[in-house]
Design a binder for these strands. Structure first.
Lengths: 165, 165
DNA sequence: TATTGTTATACTCTATAACTATA
DNA sequence: TATAGTTATAGAGTATAACAATA
């Protein structure tokens, strides 16, 4: 029997797997709700929500790709779908001629608003029915620093080219 | 401006979005690690891990499909891939001739073991570097009842046929 | 020369429905 | 008749690489 390099910490393992499992089940349910109530996928909902929370409802493509964890081409694809339906518009960035700015439209905001009640209902039923207000606060307190830490080195959608040897 | 139907609870909303965001970023990082260290996708890793934790390392196909949140055909597909590489085997269930039992092989267990150290390293770096042991315990305590509640009505991979009118 | 975004392409995954076999 | 699992099929989503335009 090989000497274990380090004992697996069961406490952490349990926390990790609980997190993965809960979020997986939650996301599955959410995707069905978004599809039914707004003909939206989860990814497109995230894009819209992030734009809605951005100042002036707009963001640079690459920044948004990083935020949603995507390749740039993936975002181009999703943005194309959203634009075709009138939920977002793309325009050249004013400061950088190479850049493109994506902005949520009134229709986009309206759709997010329309979908939110049902969305919250699902989240309430699955997640918060088991958590008190204090629990929710605790959860946020635990996860916020984690998120900030993860965001410090976001998965870059535009990978820097490897230095030539 | 329309009257809001009900005030959105910001505490819950924050907790929910923090959870979604953290798990999304975590999963993205995990997928890369599993791919690099074991040529595994996250889904296939979950299947193997669940089998490994099962008594005798085996489970019924439909039960496993429910657990991983999948259609039965999706599991058949993934099981086929895993079986082709010798990480699992499928056999007819002894008690129910219709059923199929999927079991993890020694090679499957070995691969999970081989992948776990790197796996934990990623989780430690992204998640637990920001959480104390107590925090981890708290997180588990919060999420375990949530998971149990969600599992009470699992998304049935085999949806019961709707009653005819 | 590096970076932004798009396009072309190839591939993986997923679900639905039809089908077979057993309960 | 209902359930377990597979198969056929079709569609959506993703990433990589090549490309055009700007910095």
């Amino acid at each position: 029997m090989t000497e274990p390099t380090h004992a697996v910490d069961p406490v952490r393992l349990r926390a990790y797997f609980a997190l993965i499992e809960v979020s997986g089940l939650l996301r599955h349910a959410i995707e069905q709700q978004l599809q039914a109530d707004g003909d939206l996928t989860f990814v497109r909902f995230q894009i819209l929500r992030r734009l809605q929370l951005s100042p002036a409802g707009r963001q640079r493509m690459t920044d948004l790709a990083d935020a949603i964890v995507f390749s740039r081409s993936g975002l181009t694809y999703q943005a194309g779908l959203l634009e075709k339906v009138g939920l977002v518009v793309r325009n050249p960035s004013p400061d950088d001629e190479r850049g493109v700015t994506i902005a949520i439209t009134d229709a986009g905001r309206a759709l997010v608003d329309a979908v939110m009640p049902g969305h919250e209902a699902v989240v309430d039923r699955l997640l918060f029915s088991q958590l008190s207000q204090d629990d929710a606060r605790t959860l946020t307190a635990l996860l916020t620093p984690v998120r900030d830490h993860m965001r410090e080195a976001p998965p870059r959608s535009a990978r820097p080219r490897r230095a030539r040897s």
